[in-house]
């Protein structure tokens, strides 16, 4: 069946099976930044933004994105123009193995879109669906708070 949606701001039409999961559809089409970690919606490695909200794409059937807007990590920044969050994650040492990082950045993006000035508590709550075994979260939280500050500055100027 055909599904029409917006993928990283581009109108997209894909032929998908009714039982296909969004994570598999995206990965099969080369969007490899969406990772598989558990397949049961518990780890957050496959998080994408669906109409701006972070969802585990392993729990989303592909036909469900009809008419919606999907953002994957590939739609967030480019190597020549990284997003502030991507820069701050790198600078803070928040990227170790990097397998959970795309999901973390997308969850952070959703947080900062609705709350540009989050407290440490807000960050901890927003990221609690993104498991990371490498960093201990310390530098992840630092990165998100400094990215938030930089994004606010940019907006003001």
């Amino acid at each position: 069946m055909n599904v029409c949606f917006t993928l990283n701001n581009a109108p997209t039409e894909l032929d998908v099976g009714p039982g296909e999961r969004l994570v598999d559809v995206l990965r099969a089409r080369g969007y490899m930044g969406t990772k598989y970690g558990c397949g049961t919606g518990e780890c957050g490695a496959c998080v994408v933004l669906l109409d701006g909200e972070p969802v585990n794409s392993c729990l989303v059937l592909a036909p469900r994105v009809e008419g919606k807007e999907v953002i994957t990590i590939e739609g967030v920044g480019s190597p020549l123009q990284p997003h502030i969050l991507q820069e701050e994650f790198s600078k803070a040492g928040a990227v170790q193995c990097g397998y959970c990082t795309p999901g973390m950045i997308l969850s952070s993006l959703a947080l900062l879109a609705r709350n540009p000035n989050p407290t440490r508590e807000d960050v901890l709550r927003a990221l609690d669906g993104n498991l990371c075994r490498c960093t201990g979260y310390v530098k992840v939280v630092d990165a998100i708070l400094s990215a938030a500050a930089r994004m606010r500055e940019r907006k003001e100027s």
Partner: peptide, 20 residues
């Protein structure tokens, strides 16, 4: 504390894991 050389690529979701 120089920048981890693969950090930005990983944060882009670009760097390649086995399954990618």
């Amino acid at each position: 504390s120089v920048l981890k050389i693969d950090a930005l690529g990983l944060a882009m979701g670009r760097a390649s894991f086995t399954d990618d």
